[in-house]
């Protein structure tokens, strides 16, 4: 599902590489923890995967597509196959929960009853049906993170990238989010969860742990 071949990323104006010769393979359906301290390059690695940044060197392949050479006009079709949960929730605070979740379906051209049904289905999964019409900005942190997750899950992506999805959440909410990232909810998708929080690692059994340290892959557990 994901192949990184000697990928380096140096941000313009930076001397230190954010990622240095990272090589990695993630087969379809695998659950991967991407760990490492703050500043290790976790977000950068995810941003390379959804085409928000270009690798300085090396190749980044997602589902067979070479993202590192992808022209901008091909990005939308790549991103529709991905579900991304951003480090900051990135919701539209004035719009309803329903609209926030529907966004990822609308941009893919879904309309009418199928759209309604799909949004309701996903809201059901993240236990937010009752809040469908509430403005997203009025929800608690845990609820907002579930909206963000629902938006990522709605199109049924083959690859889910979650950047610190439990970032500022209390343990109960964190557990709830992690449960939603495994099993039936994600329908067999490949999942990559970036986190600096080691206590999270015990929540998903059998997950692979990849550790980043100053832009280098330290160990693959």
């Amino acid at each position: 599902m994901i192949t990184l071949e000697a990928v380096s990323k140096i941000y313009p104006g930076r001397r230190e590489a954010a990622l240095q010769e990272v090589s990695l393979q993630v087969p379809p359906g695998e659950f991967v923890y991407l760990t490492g301290p703050s500043g290790a390059g976790k977000t950068t690695l995810l941003r390379l995967l959804y085409g928000a940044e270009l690798a300085t060197e090396g190749r980044v392949l997602v589902g067979g597509t070479d993202v590192s050479r992808l022209p901008p006009r091909r990005l939308p079709s790549l991103r529709r196959r991905l579900g991304v949960v951003f480090q900051e929730f990135r919701l539209l605070p004035k719009q309803s929960v329903f609209e926030n979740v529907a966004l990822s379906l609308r941009v893919a051209g879904l309309r009418g009853t199928p759209l309604l049904q799909r949004v309701e289905e996903v809201l059901e999964q993240v236990k937010l049906s009752d809040l469908a019409q509430a403005a997203a900005g009025t929800l608690s942190g845990g609820e907002q993170q579930r909206v963000a997750l629902a938006r990522a899950l709605a199109p049924g992506p083959a690859l889910i990238l979650a950047d610190e999805p439990t970032g500022n959440l209390d343990p109960d909410n964190a557990l709830m989010i992690m449960r939603l990232l495994v099993g039936d909810y994600v329908g067999g998708a490949t999942v990559v969860v970036a986190t600096h929080d080691p206590t999270l690692l015990s929540l998903v059994r059998g997950a692979r742990v990849i550790h980043l340290q100053q832009g280098r892959l330290e160990q693959v557990a």
């Binding site: 959804y50 928000a52 991103r79 529709r80 951003f86 966004l103 941009v107 893919a108």
Partner: peptide
């Protein structure tokens, strides 16, 4: 912000 988000979830330029 809205536009950046739309781009991130797969909106085309035309959309």
């Amino acid at each position: 912000d809205h536009l950046e988000l739309m781009a991130l979830v797969g909106a085309t330029r035309g959309y």
